[in-house]
Design a protein around this nucleic acid. Structure first.
Length: 908
RNA sequence: GCAGAGGUAGCGAAGCGGUCAAACGCGUAAGGCUUAGGACCUUAUGGCUUAGGCCUUCGAGGGUUCGAAUCCCUCCCUCUGCACCA
């Protein structure tokens, strides 16, 4: 048994590839080009095999296209923009043990960690260096000469500035307010990764309805303003302090102390703040601005003064908490407390409020669930009833919009923001919503841009096809995107240097930058300006000081662009991919728009998505160490489309085992000869069939199907060939050589090694993809081998059934006449399954005809050949005798049980 | 709710109008190989069956067809996304 040692062999080939600079792609107008990219990497940790999945999918395509003769450019770069690197630096500096321990655990030295404290860039450069090593070790055929770091390259910053200036020229930049979650202590935006808890929470818009009480406003915050018709009372809390605040316009609001502190973040300016005894309100009454009703003000424990205003309107029939509250107070004060009424009807539901409370229970978490369920139900299928004066018969969705107008008209409406759940900063402070003023947006909502984008997506090639509908939906719904922020790393907005362009917005067009990076970054930075980029990317007349270089870059861009394939995981479909497409459309002419997308799912480990936060990662480094690059790359064949795939080391073992089978065959070369048999045709035919199928699948990035054919099927077929007595070395050699080529994109090293062991001197890169005219495909022999396999299994069945071990197996093959009847029936049945019709096509009635036409729906669709069937069985006698340890005779049967494709079997 | 995907043997997963009782893999069982175990190889794995047969299956129910896991209708269920977070 020849054991394969990935480590040595892989590094041997890697060195050779590097020496020969096989992955460096230069402009070559004599060759067709293929340009593909994967997203830039955020270098704040090691990559895991979840990432490897995406990269390998791209690399396979790169290698495939290279074998097809294309000049393939596959570059890779880094993304430093935003908060994570800065955040990590701060955490290390502050001695965050978890972060430090993680770094130590992944083998990073104290000296390096110390280095990280000094600058976030040190972290980035450390990881870029190491990640580059890991990706190369995993066999990525990347041209590293064109690499850059977004937010760590002044040249790239010039490029982004140019991009934003041009977006602004096109009227696609606008300014507006924008809510973000904010740490009031550190006075910075509070991104997910900076949170001790509350990951995924986002700002939520609340309506404030102004209830009036003695010249003061009780601002009740709600997500469901349409239920105001059913308000029975106002709740406040006894737990927190309240304030009376005076707004700029003179309105006096009673709000919780906590809210009074947050109002400045919501751009509500306060003239005066004074303590207020909320107890003095209890039992008093407030006026509902919509209905004019006077309702009591009561205290209730479930009101949390730290959320929104600390003032809540009670709508018992539409809010489980309120319902429970009402049940408590209704006895006490019957006369001041009117009976609650329903204002929303849900078709087919009766007392829905009681129902949800019954189902979910009366404890706090139950009521929370009940609230969610009720909101969902009423929002989606609720209709306002006659208690909602003016909105009667309107769906809740409509009513929600309408009530806002009504409230505005009565000057009883305001908007505030609150976090959708509790967010705690790592510094310990509770996050608030900050309504940022003058935030810069990219206007992705622009109608013309959207229309173009939709057309572009419709015309793009997308693998898998399912992703298209989703993507169209996202493009259709995309809104303006806040494009700049304060803090972190990034390129300043060219016209407003206080703002830094945020990570999703500075990485929409960088694929174009790859085409020129290696030239641009050699120039004198002070000479790199907007005109230069206009001339390179937009084809403006070249009259730059650096005209020679500009011309060079223009040529590069013209040669390499458009981007032929973008490969990403599915989570980027909703944001990055949309922005990427729209920026291309906004800035570049149509012939430079992206052509193809490849979307994939995630990698799971025991069915849980692999991610750093879940702690179930296997780094690329470790995977390659343990399983070899080829073995690790097997992950790419996990799925055809966007399905998630599970990391399985069992499959990797199976891969190497099968590869070793090929090695064994190669080593046994001396045992084979030139003897030519019928089964050779089978191997030759299957070789071409496999080429055809594999090519069709790999072309569409259906790697699961592709590998199934090119490797697992192929090795099975070779096994069958040998079993059935195939001995022709040149057939075997030709077959294995094709198998190696077809699998080279997946497993570059081991295929390269085996190719060498076959005595081939040329590298597979130069060998080319094994195209086939398909003329060698002989479907008859493929069918007949199947007949042989079926017959073997039938014999086994019979032996079991009869409980005998035969001394002799006699196999009867139908005569030639029967085969021509059979084929005539097959042909005829392609047009009709009407037995009478089929009979018409046959020369004469016979036993064979009768048997074959017994059940017309069972007539196979494949033709058979007498000569093949007879010869195949005859030539396989040795194999059959070995298998059954019995004498085997094969004879032609003129009258008997035998049917074409179903030889008769007699055991004795 | 909207949008997308999907429900197939113990499990994972193909098949998407006709050799389908359903590829392939895992699991399980038997045999071989081994001192033994593992690995590996072979075979079996819906039910019944002493000559290759029959019966019931592809979420449920209807329909179209000579023929349906595959097409159409209705229903039930599951998963993913609905953003400004990288």
């Amino acid at each position: 048994m020849s054991k394969y040692e990935p480590k040595e062999i892989e590094s041997k080939w890697r060195e050779r590839y590097e020496e020969k600079k096989l992955f460096q792609a230069d402009r070559d107008t004599g060759r067709k080009k293929f340009f593909l990219t994967v997203p830039v990497i955020y270098p704040n940790g090691f990559l895991h095999v979840g990432h490897l999945y995406t990269w390998t999918r791209a690399d396979i395509y790169a290698r495939y296209m290279r074998m097809r003769g294309y000049n393939v450019l596959f570059p890779q770069s880094w993304h430093f923009t935003g908060g994570p690197l800065v955040g990590m630096q701060l955490k290390i500096k502050n001695g965050d043990q978890k972060v430090i321990k993680d770094l130590q655990d992944s083998g990073i030295s104290e000296k390096e960690i110390d280095d990280f404290k000094r600058s976030p860039l040190n972290i980035g450069t450390f990881f870029t260096k190491n990640l580059k090593k890991d990706l190369s070790a995993a066999g990525m055929s990347i041209d590293w000469r064109r690499t850059f770091s977004i937010s760590n390259s002044p040249y790239f910053s010039k490029f982004v500035s140019w991009q934003f200036n041009r977006l602004r020229d096109a009227g696609l930049i606008t300014q507006n307010t924008h809510p973000v979650i904010w740490c009031p202590r550190e006075d910075t935006p509070l991104g997910d990764h900076d949170r001790a808890s509350g990951e995924g929470e986002s700002p939520e818009e609340f309506s404030v309805i102004k209830f009036k009480h003695e010249g003061m406003v009780l601002p009740a915050a709600t997500l469901r303003p349409e239920t105001v018709f059913g308000a029975t009372n106002i709740w406040v809390s006894r737990k927190g302090g309240y304030k009376k605040v005076e707004l700029e316009d003179g309105e006096k609001w009673i709000v919780s102390e906590s809210f009074s502190n947050k109002m400045k973040y919501q751009l509500i300016k306060l003239k005066k703040v004074e303590d207020f005894d909320v107890g003095s309100l209890i039992g008093k009454r407030a006026e509902n601005p919509v209905t004019g009703e006077s309702i009591p003000i009561l205290a209730e424990d479930f009101v949390d003064p730290s959320i929104t205003t600390g003032v809540v309107m009670s709508v018992p029939m539409h809010a489980p908490f309120d319902y429970i509250g009402w049940e408590k107070v209704k006895e006490e004060d019957e006369k001041m407390y009117k009976k609650p009424k329903k204002v929303i009807e849900v078709n087919g539901e009766g007392e829905i409020i009681q129902e949800v409370i019954r189902v979910y229970g009366k404890n706090t978490s139950g009521l929370r669930e009940a609230t969610k369920a009720l909101y969902k139900k009423e929002f989606n299928s609720g209709v306002m009833n006659s208690s909602a004066d003016g909105l009667d018969g309107m769906s809740v969705k409509e009513a929600k919009l309408k009530i806002v107008d009504m409230l505005k008209e009565k000057a009883a409406y305001a908007v505030i923001y609150e976090t959708s759940g509790e967010v705690i900063c790592r510094c310990g402070a509770r996050g608030v919503v900050n309504l940022l003023e003058n935030q810069w947006f990219i206007r992705y909502s622009d109608k013309e841009l959207k229309e173009k984008a939709i057309k572009a997506v419709e015309n793009m090639e997308i693998f898998p096809e399912e992703a298209r509908a989703q993507l169209l939906n996202f493009v259709y719904n995309v809104e303006d995107k806040a494009a700049a922020r304060q803090g972190g790393l990034g390129t300043p907005l060219p016209w407003d240097k206080d703002w830094l362009i945020e990570p999703l917005s500075d990485s929409t067009l960088y694929m174009a930058y790859y085409t020129i990076a290696h030239i641009l970054e050699r120039l004198n930075i002070s000479e790199v300006d907007d005109e230069l980029f206009d001339q390179v990317f937009l084809g403006k007349e070249i009259k730059h000081k650096l005209a020679t270089e500009v011309k060079l870059m223009r040529d590069e861009f013209e040669y390499w662009y458009p981007l032929d394939l973008r490969v990403t995981a599915k989570e980027l479909l909703t944001n990055h991919i949309v922005f990427f497409i729209m920026n291309h459309i906004a800035l570049l002419p149509k012939d430079k728009w992206p052509k193809r997308l490849g979307i994939n799912g995630w990698v799971t480990m025991d069915s849980i998505k692999m991610s750093k936060s879940k702690g179930n990662t296997l780094t690329i480094r470790k995977a390659v160490e343990e399983y070899g690059a080829d073995g690790s790359r097997l992950i790419a064949s996990g799925s055809n489309g966007m399905d998630d795939v599970d990391w399985s080391s069992d499959n990797i073992k199976a891969l190497y085992q099968r590869m070793e089978l090929l090695m064994d065959v190669l080593e046994a070369k001396e045992g084979f000869g030139q003897e030519s048999r019928l089964i050779d045709r089978y191997l030759a035919s299957m070789k071409e069939s496999i080429i055809e199928r594999t090519t069709a699948e790999i072309e569409k990035m259906n790697y699961r199907n592709s590998l199934f054919n090119s490797f697992f099927q192929a090795t099975d077929i070779l096994k069958s060939y040998l079993e059935f007595g195939g001995r022709n070395w040149s057939e075997i050699e030709g077959f294995i050589s094709v198998v190696l080529k077809l699998n080279h994109p997946f497993f570059p090293y081991i295929t390269e090694e085996l190719n060498r062991r076959m005595g081939n001197v040329t590298l597979l890169e130069e060998g080319g993809w094994p195209d086939t005219p398909g003329t060698g495909i002989d479907i008859l022999i493929e069918n007949e081998v199947q007949v042989l396999k079926n017959t073997v299994s039938d014999i086994r069945n019979l032996m079991k059934l009869l409980k005998i071990t035969p001394k002799e197996v006699r196999i009867g093959i139908s005569d030639e006449a029967a085969f021509s009847v059979y084929n005539a029936i097959v042909e005829a049945s392609k047009n009709t399954r009407d037995i009478k019709e089929i009979r018409k096509a046959l020369p004469a009635e016979s036993e064979t005809v009768k048997k074959l036409l017994k059940s017309p729906d069972k007539i196979p669709q494949s033709n058979l050949a007498f000569k093949y069937e007879f010869d195949l069985f005859t030539q396989s006698k040795e194999y059959l005798e070995n298998t059954f340890k019995a004498k085997v005779t094969v004879e032609v049967e003129h009258e008997g049980k035998a049917l074409p494709g179903k030889p008769s079997i007699r055991l004795s």
